[in-house]
Each structure stands twice: as C-alpha cells, then as structure tokens.
Amino acid sequence: MASSSSSSSTQVKKITLKAADGKHFEVEEPVAMEMETVKSFFVGNEDAMKDMVVPLLNVSSEHMPAILDFYRNHSEFRKRTPPPPAEEVKAFNEAFLENKSDEQLMEMIMAANFLNTKELLNFLTEAAANRIKNKSVEYVRAFFGIENDFTPEEEARIRAENEWAFDGLDED
C-alpha cells in the first residue's frame, strides 16, 4: 500500500507531555486536547499554554506513542467526509492490538482511564473483554493477575451452584 507524502506548512502549536518515567513527548495541540486530563489542565488557565510541561503520572512512556497514534487516527476518522469505511477503522484497530500482551493491554486501560478519554477506554476494555470471553475461571484469574482467595470447598460450592456456567468453554 502506498502512502502520500504531503506535508502541512502551517505551524501547529505543540504541547509537551511528561510520561511517568520522565520522558517528554511533544504533541500537536488538537491531539493533546483529545485527553480530558490534559484539557482540564489548561481550562481556566490560559497562561499555562506556554512552555508548560503536563505531567502524566500514570502513563508510562512505553505506551505513549501508541496512544498518541490512536488519538491522531481516530480524530482524523471522525473529521473525514465521507466517513471512512468500517474496514479501514477495523484494520487500524486490529493492527493497534496486534502484539500487545495482556499486561500491556491492562496498563493501557489504566492509562486511558487516567487520561479520561472515553473512546480509547471503551475500545481497550472491549478488547480485554474479547480476550476473556468464554474462557475458564483459571484463565480469567491469570489474565487479570488475580489470586484465588476461595477455599477449595467454597469454590466447589460456587461452581456447583452455577453449574450451567461451566459448560463448553473455549480452550485457554
């Protein structure tokens, strides 16, 4: 697939974001404003615009490029007339999730929650749901990194109560 090489000559205002580990990211203003957390940093604080670095305490720099990429693409999808074909959005979303481990997905959910962006949060939580759909309890525990705190007797009783929920699960 070819890609175009046009470049915009107008100067876009940049905002500097600081990830949890101190790494800085220069981001175009409209992209930064996709994040409610960043937006609220500037609301009612017009002076804050210049040279201010916005600290993002819960977002590791490992995930910043992917997250910014998501905002850039999805805001472009929203603006486009006519709207992009569903396939194009789907292809982007699938590529976004490819090679992301369960742990990375979980960390990004935390980041999206902190950044307070509904679209990204819904997308990631639904992706997490798809990964545990129709899986065994053991699989779900491992997925979320949860310790089993039931006694064997308790667990056996709960399973007996909900017997129909343990029928025909997918392979872990």
Binding site: A129, V137, V140, I146, D149, E155, I158, N162, A165
Partner: peptide
C-alpha cells in the same frame, strides 16, 4: 459489561 451475562456469573468464581 461487554460480556454475556453467563460469563459475568462465571467470573463470580474468580475471587471473593
């Protein structure tokens, strides 16, 4: 919330 209710009930056995 994205899962079927039966999955959510099964998840009740994950932890207290």
């Amino acid at each position: 919330s994205f899962l079927e209710t039966i999955d959510v009930i099964r998840a009740g056995s994950v932890c207290r």
